[in-house]
Design a protein around this nucleic acid. Structure first.
Lengths: 149, 149
DNA sequence: CCGTATCCATTCCGATACTG
DNA sequence: CAGTATCGGAATGGATACGG
């Protein structure tokens, strides 16, 4: 008894996403991947996590189609973990985490890493949600509607 | 030994955010809050989670300043949990989770709930990240830079 | 260097009973 | 209705040893 409830087939996309990538480590691994990390050992050293956990997480992410295993780019006969298009599509989510943390979790003078655009080296703007006619939308301007075929 | 590593004072905002709200339940609670849920029992029934867990999570979120406890709007002598500005600022993150799930976790014909703008009832667009000069940015256009005072 | 396997501590979570 | 207390089972995570 007391089986952990699974959200795998939830009707809400938020729940389903969390089921796939909602644990803390996975999102940090993905963050590192956006920074260009590809090798097992790099992830491990960078995150300071146990190897068995990393192994499990990577396996899970590969199973979910977020990462893809490719032969190493150097001759090393090993593998590398690269983001699939599905994984790349998590970019906004990582940015969302980053921006919320920046805005709400740091003291005034406290330093933190910053995301800049490659071309000009300037900090990116905040994520924006717009309606179909281009209006900027906040929480109060939206509503969730259930859709049943 | 084997103490769980804390990311509370991490230099990366992504890690810090995950430390605060990165467990699966918290984000689902917050999602419900954006749908207008305010009462303990409503959260509990809606999410189907154990009351003690909900209690813990709410306490944690209040401690982190995401929720605020206010007296009940009806006369019921109980309390309600409403999002603070800091909590409201999580909107983009919830939307990010939703949109990634919608785009990547559902079969072609499969139905799911949808976020629409209140005014026209039309589905919202995808989140957008822009540079300071207005260009739309993807993962390849960005770079994370470490900042050390 | 890349991973897997094993062991153990900690944490998480669900069920239930209980108080106000 | 709104929560707290307690219990047991499950999952998670860290350390380490081991094999490819």
């Amino acid at each position: 008894m007391a089986k952990r409830t699974s959200l795998e087939s939830a009707e809400c996309p938020v729940a389903r996403s969390l089921e796939a990538i909602g644990d803390g480590w996975s999102l940090l691994i993905i963050r590192d991947a956006f920074d260009g990390i590809r090798r097992f050992g790099e992830f491990q050293r960078n995150l300071g996590m146990a190897k068995n956990i990393l192994s499990m997480r990577l396996r899970n992410l590969v199973a979910h189609g977020v990462f893809e295993v490719v032969p190493a780019s150097d001759g090393s006969a090993y593998q590398e973990y690269v983001l699939t298009p599905k994984g790349n599509d998590l970019f906004n989510l990582i940015i969302g985490l980053r921006q919320w943390g920046e805005a709400n979790l740091y003291e005034a003078g406290e330093q933190h890493s910053v995301m800049v655009d490659r071309e000009k080296g300037q900090p990116v703007q905040r994520l924006e949600l717009r309606s179909e006619d281009g209006r900027l939308l906040g929480p109060q301007d939206c509503r969730r509607i259930a859709v049943d075929g």
